[in-house]
Each structure stands twice: as C-alpha cells, then as structure tokens.
Amino acid sequence: MADLLKKEQIQIQKTIWFFLLMSWIFRWWSGVLFYQLNNAPFVSVEADNTFWLFHALQFPYFSIHYFYIGIILDLLWLVFAIIGLTIKHNRIISTLMCLLFINYFITFNSVSTHHEHILTGLLFCIILLPIKDHKNFVLVFASIRFYAVFTMFSAGLWKVCRGSVVNPLQMTEILKTQHLDYIVNYPESYYTNFINYLIINPNISNFFWHCSWLIEVAFIIGFLTRKFDKILGIGILLFFFFNYLLMDLFFIEFCIFTIAFYPFKGVWDYYNTKLAISKSI
C-alpha cells in the first residue's frame, strides 16, 4: 500500500506541476504574465483584506512597475514548473512556487480590476506540493476534495438564496451581457445565430441554466460519500465545458479540482485503513 501511495502522491504532485506549466503557457498566450501587465494603470483591491495587505507591502507594485522584476518572476515560475515536473520532491522549490503563485494570484486579480475565481483551483491544490509526509498528504488531499465539493455546491446554494434559479430570464440576460460585443461585431456568424436563438428562446436557455444548477447541487452527495466521485469529476468538466460553449468563460485552470475526484486507490486505502481510528482508542 505504501508503494502505491508513494507512486500516487508523486502522480498528483506532477499533475499539479503540469497544470502550473500549462497555466504559464496559457497566460503568456493571453498576455497576462507579470511582464505583460507592466505599468497597468489601474488596480482594484475591492474589500479583500489580503489584497490590502499585499498592496500595502508593495508586492504587486514591484511586480508590475519594475519590468525586470516582472520578467524574473515569470521566468522563475516557468523554471520551477519545469524542475518540479522533472526532478524528485523538493520542498524549497515547492514552497517558493506557492509564494510566487500567491503573489501572481493577487497581482493578476488586482490588475484585472475584477477578482476572478479562475485560479482558485490551483491556489488550493499547490498546497499539496511541499508536503512529503504520506499521512499529512492524504489528510490535506481529503481536505481539498471537500473544498472542491464546497465550491460547486455553494454555487448552487447561492442561486437558491438569491432566487436566480427561478428567474425565468436569468440565462437570457446573462447571455446578452456576456456576448454583447461579439453579437454586435459579428452579427452574421454561426455563433451569434446560436446565442441569439438561445436569447429569444428562454425555455431552451433555461434548460441549460437549470442543468448547470442541478450539477452544482448534486455535489452535496460529495460531502456524504466518495462512491460517486467519478460522476462528480465528470460533472465539473461538463459544467465548465458548457460554461465555455455558452458563456465564453475558459476555466481550464479551475478544472484542476477534478484531480480530487479521481479514484486514487493508494490514497483512499490509506485514508480508510491507516488513518482509521480503532474503537479501543
């Protein structure tokens, strides 16, 4: 069991390093690495106290206002990701990567002036990188699985509390706001016709809205059992595939959470047996 767990722990950590590398490439292509955000005029800290602290300590300021610091931070991310993928566990590099990523998360969201959740999957999963001890790794992995369940289920719950799940025009209004630019700039395209069709047929767009809500609330089962984890993992992928198709939201980095629903035999056997508390204790 220990060998299988060790193998799976390495697999999970390498997958996270791979996502970090892909994220770097995707962000370079999107033009949002530190050096590409150089001298961005506006920031938005909103009411986030952690953002306030980071900005007061000037970490985002140095990252975006000093071009060469930005370049160095970008290169460090790339080099750490490559090292993490190729060599054995290294706690110092893993810890530095975590700090680097937290700084990027805060700086990017500040400069976007819109605090997105697109990177929260990676933000939580990178906690697994510095951990070497099997017991702690399994406990933290189980915690991240519960957090992934929470992210999806709470989204469904917010829609109930705010009443948007029963709003008959919710999806059509989201589509109008989301695609206004595309529709006015490409009035004849197939995609515009598709989105227009959904806007003028609220019953069909609501079908997608309610299906996505059902996927979200179905995650409540994840708090009670791991029996349906494969379905929940597919649920996340489906949810974000349709998000991309209908809303043009590309949440690939968030999908790292699906790793928590993969049935790692070694990890969960260890969780069920080695971490089990006998009744005599």
Partner: peptide, 15 residues
C-alpha cells in the same frame, strides 16, 4: 471575500 475565503456565486446574482 478576503482571500482565501471566497464566495462562489457563479452568476447567481439576479439578472
């Protein structure tokens, strides 16, 4: 929200 305590509304505000 205060990082890392996020609220995952995911378009839950009434439109």
């Amino acid at each position: 929200e205060t990082t890392p305590f996020f609220n995952y509304g995911m378009y839950s505000e009434n439109c």
